[in-house]
Amino acid sequence: MENFETLDTGGSTGQISSEHRDSFREAGKYMKIYTIVMFVAFGLLVLGLLLFFAAGGSNIYQAAMRELDSQQRAVLEILWPMISIIAIVLPVFMIVFFIAFLRLNRSASALSAASFTGDMNDFRSAMANMRMYWMIVGIGVIAAIVFGIFIAIRMASIISQYQ
């Protein structure tokens, strides 16, 4: 407990001052709020996807075809294969990013804990989880770019067929 007292009175013996601890707390707080917002957004997205799959892709397609005029139907006909692929790939991306946000949430908790306890293990956990978050996001970004290129190529070939 002596260590806590030393830190709380601002008598830092090394590199970590009370200003550092405040910055840990502030960063942890905003990271936490961000993850909560993201979890809510994920929940809504999952709900949308569940509705899509529950209604059945072909049912949605047929219902949309009935409602649209001929020009819009032509556009939907071109886009539909892409929409189906995205609907299948999107849950995979969502799972990956959900794991990333779980890591960020843990990092935020550990950072806040480090600001109170001054424990190196909390700081270690915060940095390890933050590293995992940025690594997953980085790999996710690479995968999204590859997927985007794939979709663009498929789209170009479909449009050229229609022309």
């Binding site: 260590n3 090394g14 590199q15 970590i16 480090a114 424990d119 190196m120 293990n121 270690r124």
Partner: peptide, 15 residues
């Protein structure tokens, strides 16, 4: 307990 409030150059290499 390892503590953040340590003399300089105290951050472990793994971190």
């Amino acid at each position: 307990m390892e503590n953040l409030d340590q003399p300089s150059n105290s951050f472990p290499e793994d971190i």
